[in-house]
Design a protein around this nucleic acid. Structure first.
Lengths: 229, 229
DNA sequence: AACCGTAGGATTGTTGAACGATCCTCTAAC
DNA sequence: GTTAGAGGATCGTTCAACAATCCTACGGTT
């Protein structure tokens, strides 16, 4: 996406949200977040304040508040006197993210009950639908939703919030990897396997499958990161 | 602490930090955070922008950036068009905080190794020293450090950060409870028991003790919360 | 040619004042 | 007693300006 395209897209995103919610800073942060998720701003890109004042139609102070919000979500990095940069995941970040996921998701899956399984299987179904439509980024989104559903079975608002942040960070890494189909499609069937196992009463088997899933995904991301750095 | 005292303390805190750290917003946030932790601002208190501009010697925009930082740490609540308030923990918050603690700390303790135990026992020693000096808030701080040390054995930066936030939130609740000695002192010996068990090779026994500890602490806090609300 | 210090420009950090928007309170009418 | 509305307090946002800092490119020295 060219810079001009990104700027235009930003104006559209800001316009859409302006009518819906909250403060100007939140609207600006929403638009920027979406642009980053779409790939319009890539990891490592510098985000210059002045270039966004026009498209977002906010003042500099408000834009800086929006930057603070995104910095807390770890989507951008704020370097004093140097500006804001779209976050670049390191191999250490990937390892840390999966360490946390393993710790939380395995325990959450053990605690899950029947009501939680339906949310999980709905996410799998959504992923299959996206795959049939060849919407591979949609498959990735559905995969994330599946894992969020696992964590949601704990019923903790703070844990849900943590998982939201972890998935947002992981998504940054997705953009740096190659073919989205090759990366996302194969995990779809594995998710289905986990649902089947847990719904069939084999909780520990499902936990084992989930652990293998996470280890494999971590290894695949790490391989991609070490190859180009 | 009177309002005038709080304002004076704030000016001192800001002056101390101004020579050390980064941006003005961070300095202001540090000073406010410390004031909240010391009890100079109590849960439910409204924090009016204008009243802090003078003591902190920052502009309104900068102060608002500081508020954003504290809001993200959940130390203050930002209500649109109504201002910022020092956060008040609800019973639901307490339950959620302990749910997360149980999930993370039990797993972390299972993974701990000898190097981690020294950090844990150092925290216990620090707590005993504070108790001898009748510094009951220091005992509470040392208790928190003990639990942070448990989580640190996972070796995850994100988990450490989460634990920092959880302890900061819990501290808000401490201020609302009565006698700090009665609340903190008895947990000191239980921490020591956990260290002894894990160092003696009885990891699962230690995990059991930790679980009981957390359940009791949660019950005690919940009892205090339901009594006055 | 390689190195170093130094302008100069570009960008961020911070301030102060201003004005509109929103909420709360107090009053007055019913 | 309840409701409606006016007024004041406070917040949300913008704008313009200046200070502080960083990056780059230039020129001098070895």
């Amino acid at each position: 996406m060219s810079v001009e395209d990104a700027v235009g897209r930003l104006r559209d995103l800001a316009g859409l949200r302006r009518r819906v919610h909250g403060t100007a800073a939140e609207v600006a942060a929403d638009a920027l977040r979406e642009l980053i998720m779409e790939g319009g701003l890539r990891p490592g890109d510098r985000v210059i304040e002045e270039s966004l004042l026009g498209p977002l139609e906010v003042s500099r102070n408000t834009l800086r508040e929006a930057f603070r919000l995104l910095a807390h979500e770890k989507l951008v990095e704020h370097k004093v006197n140097r500006g804001v940069f779209v976050r670049t995941l390191t191999a250490a970040d990937v390892r840390d993210l999966f360490t946390v996921r393993v710790l939380i998701e395995l325990t959450a899956l053990r605690r899950s009950r029947e009501a939680d399984w339906t949310a999980m299987s709905q996410a799998v179904a959504k992923g299959k639908a996206c795959a049939r439509a060849h919407d591979w980024l949609g498959v990735g989104t559905a995969n994330m939703r599946f894992h969020k559903a696992i964590v949601a079975s704990v019923g903790s608002a703070r844990l849900d919030e943590l998982m939201d942040q972890l998935t947002a960070e992981l998504r940054l890494g997705f953009h740096e990897m190659g073919d989205p189909r090759a990366f996302h499609e194969k995990y779809l069937t594995r998710n289905a396997g986990i649902v089947d196992a847990v719904a069939g009463g084999d909780v520990e088997g499902a936990v084992g499958l989930l652990h293998e899933y996470l280890d494999d995904a971590e290894a695949e991301m790490l391989a991609a990161f070490s190859s180009d750095r």
